[in-house]
Simulated assay, not measured.
Amino acid sequence: MDGLVYINVNWGITFLTQTAAGILGNSALLCLYNFTIITAQRLRPTDLILNQLVLANNLVILSKGIPQTMAALGLKPFLDEAGCKVVYYLHRVARGVTLSTTCLLSGFQAMKLCPTISGWMELKIKSPKCIIFCSFLCWILHLVINISVVKHVTGPTNNKNMSMEKMYRYCSSPALGRLVFSVTAVVYLFTDGMFWGLMVWTSSFMVLFLYRHKQRVQHIHSSRLPPRANYETRATCIILILVSMFISFHSLSSTLSFWITQIQNPIPWLIKISSLVSLFFPTFSPLVFIFSDTRVSQFYSACWTRKTNAPSMVSGL
């Protein structure tokens, strides 16, 4: 019994650390991007997309990390049936929005690099209205296709014949009929496959662009490039890193989830590892922007300077 409690505490600390780190990183970026959008200072077209991405990341972590932490620590069930429906629905929607937003970010950067796009089209894709509209469609799409979650997810149950969704210890889902399961699987596979295909296609284009760009630079024999070319190359590399992280973590998470669903009595630690892996992208992706975007350090450096200067100004008065 002591060993079981010890294991639960270890998993609880692990989930708590991951959840706290993810929320802190995404919230820091959310403050920065919202401040930039509100003040319109050095606003970039991708800021609107990144703002949506970190918001979706936060929802994924909050809706899964906190319940998993409390479950690992052995706390009593705190979600009733309505709570399970709301929390799991938010998780599915936020997870889908993360996928579509990452795809949108990759596609946006690929369109900026494409030399065949005319000038008016380039201005159109840079328009905030166009980006807001695409972001709005992402939310509407996943709010609609995940509506079945509200019907099928139930609250805590002691019935061993229930097919657990393996997301929370507190929530469960009855075994779906073959027709309902098939239709749901087709809808999810189609939407996820569409976004995955677009993401792979745009990423391949950007890799090819970087390869040709490197060849041109070698032919020029000069390290002095236009600032815009340097910026676009750097932004492309950052997005490719982000897409690579998403594909790697999402593939591993999907593989583990499918493996768990095929096992009659899955091992508890395997379920916990699957939950940890599913939170890797929303937890670690903010680090890519924190260490690559110079505005992050400038923004928080300015906030820290203002905070430290405030006492000296008061004492001077």
Rank of each mutant, 00 (worst) to 15 (best):
A21R: 04
I23A: 07
L29T: 08
R42E: 06
T46H: 15
L48C: 09
V54L: 04
L55N: 14
I61C: 07
K64A: 10
G65A: 05
L73Y: 01
L75R: 14
C84W: 02
L99A: 06
T102D: 12
L104M: 02
S106Q: 01
M111I: 01
C130E: 08
F133M: 11
C134H: 10
W139M: 13
I140R: 00
V144K: 03
I145W: 03
V149N: 10
H152S: 14
V153R: 13
T154I: 04
T157E: 03
M162E: 09
S163Q: 13
S163T: 15
Y168L: 06
Y168P: 07
R169V: 10
R169I: 04
R169A: 10
R169M: 11
Y170Q: 15
A175S: 13
A175E: 15
L176H: 08
G177P: 05
G177Y: 03
V180Y: 02
Y188R: 12
L189I: 07
M194Y: 13
G197F: 06
G197M: 01
L198I: 10
F205Q: 14
M206K: 02
R212P: 05
Q218G: 08
H221S: 04
R224G: 13
A229C: 02
T236L: 03
I238C: 04
V243C: 12
V243D: 04
L252T: 14
T261E: 09
I263H: 06
Q264A: 01
N265V: 12
I267K: 03
W269H: 03
L270E: 09
V277P: 02
P282Y: 03
F284G: 00
V288P: 04
I290S: 06
F291W: 12
R295C: 10
S297A: 12
Y300S: 12
W304M: 08
T305Y: 11
K307R: 05
S312V: 06
S315N: 12
